[in-house]
């Protein structure tokens, strides 16, 4: 594990926004709908309300720009249905 180079990464990060610039075309997470059981845990535990339930109660990423990659959703997913694309 190498220490992050502070100067270069701080400049590349746009002010006030997540450095990944998540949007509907650039989603932070992959959700495996075949494994999801619609337990509602990720929707309820997300601190920035990224998810919204679809008609089956399964999560869809309604506000991807709010995601801070805090890992709470996939750490608490009992069925390993949420996979993060980022570290």
């Amino acid at each position: 594990m190498t220490a992050p180079t502070d100067a270069g990464e701080a400049e590349a990060k746009p002010a006030g926004k997540n450095k990944h610039n998540f949007s509907k075309d650039n989603l932070p997470l992959e959700i495996n709908m075949g494994w999801c059981k619609a337990c509602n845990l990720c929707i309820a535990l997300c601190p920035t309300q990224v998810f919204e339930p679809d008609r089956d109660g399964k999560p869809i990423q309604a506000r991807p720009e709010a995601c801070t990659l805090c890992t709470i959703c996939w750490v608490h997913c009992p069925d390993f249905a949420i996979v993060s694309k980022h570290k």
Partner: peptide, 12 residues
């Protein structure tokens, strides 16, 4: 998915 109920803590 596994045999456990939706939201079961065993998966976590």
């Amino acid at each position: 998915p596994s045999v456990w109920c939706p939201g079961c803590g065993n998966g976590i």
